[in-house]
Design a protein around this nucleic acid. Structure first.
Lengths: 194, 194
DNA sequence: TTGAACATGTAAACGGTTACATGATTTA
DNA sequence: TAAATCATGTAACCGTTTACATGTTCAA
């Protein structure tokens, strides 16, 4: 049942679909609907993990078919809310994934690509791009600080998730700080060309 | 001819294929074969941009069909080397892309997801994962410094690409430093749980 | 002589997103 | 009463990678 080692017709080892683990992880503690999972992700893991509707709902159905989760439909008025609960098999699969080593997926960064090709355009264009990014990154940074001060800081110290959520948030803060530093430095360097 | 605004049957705006711009950018200064482009990317942009064979060769053909590049096959002995040259139309399309603003593509980070779910496993497992990542990131960092000291530093200061390549490299250095700091800090925090 | 690097390419498949579709409920 | 949010779901499509395929040249 381990999809990670399943092969297709031409013997290719399929890349593992990680949506399943993200969903199983979210359901590990509490029953949630697809909608609730999405909302929770937006408020917690959005900086490093998001899922779209078109990934969540079909995957929950697949997981149910596989016996990894079970669901019951609750009606709030006439509105459906299908709550999903993880099964023992689901917990097992999730923990197996947790135990595996993780490869860093090298990522594409279009801004860096454009800066790399910078000699082909007016330096002011590159500077403008960096300023635009700076504004966005600063906003992101403020949001991280806000979560740190107004959400995480208010959780009791014995809240089991606190340290883990703090660590992932801290990643966002430190990486964002570094990016701000890099942008400021880069703008300064490019201005010498004007 | 601008693929960015082309729509499909259901009116969906297609995500733009950025491989074309990466290739056009690489060809902006000098004629290169697909193989040479790949090698050059591995030695310069790998940290933020890579392309696989299966993206490069077909895309070069498409670009040629569209009149964005032109090619001639050189024979080195019996081995073919198809050199591609950018056309004026290709330069135009590349520069249009360069002028566009760039959205940050939010990226998935599996390590962070696993750490976020950390309360479900022994803290030692999370620490182990961080140690593994630390070793890799440190190696990456050393490679950046090596390029900085032994490649970029040796380019003459009036080499037109120097400042742009320095900026992108500096991004790698600063972000990697921040990640190392984060990992060390996180390991320390998690050890308190033991 | 054998393996690494050079060199170009294709088939198959999966991952993931955007837009579409539908309707209920709350809020301004 | 209109817009935003709640809530679930599907169709279509594109992007990208992995593995396969083929052959040459060079170095150990």
């Amino acid at each position: 049942m381990n999809v990670a080692i399943e092969k297709n017709k031409i013997g290719k080892i399929n890349k593992i679909n990680k949506t399943r683990y993200a969903l199983l992880g979210m359901l590990f503690d509490s029953q949630m609907s697809g909608y609730e999972i999405k909302q929770f992700m937006l408020g917690s893991t959005a900086n490093f993990w998001k899922e779209s509707d078109a990934s969540i709902y079909p995957m929950l159905k697949i997981l149910e078919k596989e016996g990894m989760v079970a669901s019951k439909s609750e009606l709030k008025g006439k509105r459906e809310s299908r709550k999903f609960e993880i099964t023992d098999a689901g917990k097992k699969e999730f923990l197996e994934w947790m135990g595996k080593t993780t490869e860093k997926e090298s990522r594409r960064n279009e801004l860096l690509l454009k800066l790399f090709f910078g000699k082909n355009v007016n330096p002011e264009e590159s500077i403008k791009k960096l300023h635009l990014r700076l504004a966005k990154v600063k906003k992101e940074y403020e949001q991280f600080i806000d979560i740190q001060d107004n959400v995480l800081a208010k959780l009791p110290d014995d809240y089991p998730n606190k340290i883990f959520w703090s660590i992932t948030l801290r990643n966002g803060i430190l990486l964002t700080e570094a990016e701000i530093k890099w942008i400021v430095e880069s703008i300064k360097a490019l201005k010498k060309l004007l």
